[in-house]
Amino acid sequence: MNQKQTIKIALAGNPNVGKSTLFNTLTGLKQHTGNWPGKTVILAKGSFSYKGKDYTIYDLPGTYSLLSNSTDEEVARDFIVFEKPDITIVVLDATTIERNLNLALQVMEITDQVIICINLIDEAKKKGIIINENVMMDKLGVPVIKISARNKVGINLLLDTIDRMITGNISTTPYQIKYSNEVEEKLKQLIPKMDKIVGDDISPRWLALRLLDGDESILKTYMRRKQMGEGEEKSDGYK
């Protein structure tokens, strides 16, 4: 990647996992907020530099899923799908990892450029919770880093991991959920059709899953943006 190009990062996570604290730690005072185009949802946008590279980071609305059941979910989902961040960082609460993993798995179905940040490790330690990030990394197929955004623990490792992923020194193989035989058979039929429609723009498997779930909104949004040339819906234009 051209080092003069600004690299785009999305910050995703459930509500109250410390996502905004991490955002503030990374960006300091170099941030501002604005509405997502056509929505009342506010996005925070900030910037930072590391090892000669410039980054823009977006603090997405806190959500429990990306199933577009709410405006917040729709905005978070659409940002990852259409704005195509170079890296999506998913922040988990170290004390409630199992519940938080649902969102992480959904993100990994959309993009393979994912870093998992396990935040609040100080709180987990107080509760006697032990987390083996290396085992999680092997299972999930993406970098897993333990941090305390509030105390700035693990931030340097996170920055180094971001840099290594951007420079191609880290490759990922995100864990993909295997569904029932019936669903997987339907996916085999749908994926080639989706591939013809969206190509590399969206993961055909993820889009097929959404359609099987009865959610046609993402395909409609894609077709609308295609017709509009995406000129009116870019996040960098939010005010």
Score class of each variant (00 low, 15 high):
129 I>R: 08
67 L>K: 11
116 I>Q: 01
102 N>H: 13
79 F>Y: 13
50 Y>N: 09
139 K>T: 14
117 C>E: 11
134 N>S: 15
137 M>Q: 15
107 V>R: 09
66 L>E: 03
68 S>P: 00
132 N>W: 15
129 I>M: 12
52 G>D: 06
52 G>Y: 02
58 Y>I: 10
67 L>V: 09
98 E>N: 11
138 D>I: 13
95 T>N: 10
55 Y>T: 03
142 V>G: 05
108 M>E: 03
88 T>Y: 03
76 A>C: 05
94 A>D: 00
135 V>M: 13
52 G>I: 08
56 T>Q: 10
78 D>E: 09
144 V>M: 07
135 V>S: 14
123 E>T: 05
69 N>S: 00
92 L>E: 01
133 E>S: 15
83 E>P: 09
129 I>F: 09
76 A>S: 11
60 L>V: 00
126 K>E: 13
105 L>D: 14
82 F>Q: 06
132 N>H: 15
138 D>S: 14
90 V>T: 09
79 F>P: 07
62 G>A: 00
92 L>G: 02
63 T>K: 05
49 S>F: 10
100 N>S: 15
53 K>I: 12
95 T>D: 06
47 S>V: 04
113 Q>T: 13
88 T>V: 03
130 I>C: 11
111 T>I: 06
53 K>Q: 12
97 I>E: 05
94 A>G: 04
63 T>H: 01
106 Q>C: 14
120 L>H: 06
145 I>T: 10
71 T>K: 06
117 C>K: 05
131 I>C: 13
149 A>F: 06
104 A>N: 14
99 R>V: 14
105 L>R: 14
85 P>K: 02
82 F>C: 08
93 D>A: 02
57 I>S: 02
91 V>A: 10
121 I>C: 11
98 E>R: 12
91 V>R: 07
82 F>N: 08
100 N>F: 14
55 Y>K: 07
73 E>V: 04
59 D>H: 05
67 L>C: 04
125 K>E: 08
57 I>E: 09
133 E>T: 15
121 I>G: 02
97 I>W: 01
108 M>P: 08
106 Q>P: 15
78 D>W: 03
62 G>D: 01
137 M>F: 14
61 P>E: 01
89 I>V: 02
136 M>C: 12
52 G>A: 01
96 T>R: 12
73 E>L: 01
147 I>G: 03
119 N>S: 11
130 I>E: 15
66 L>Y: 02
99 R>A: 13
94 A>H: 02
51 K>R: 10
61 P>F: 00
125 K>Y: 04
82 F>S: 03
90 V>I: 08
94 A>S: 04
94 A>L: 06
65 S>R: 06
67 L>D: 08
143 P>N: 10
102 N>Q: 12
146 K>P: 06
133 E>V: 15
122 D>K: 05
101 L>Y: 12
129 I>G: 09
58 Y>R: 00
55 Y>M: 07
139 K>P: 08
87 I>W: 00
107 V>D: 10
143 P>C: 10
84 K>F: 00
142 V>H: 01
106 Q>M: 15
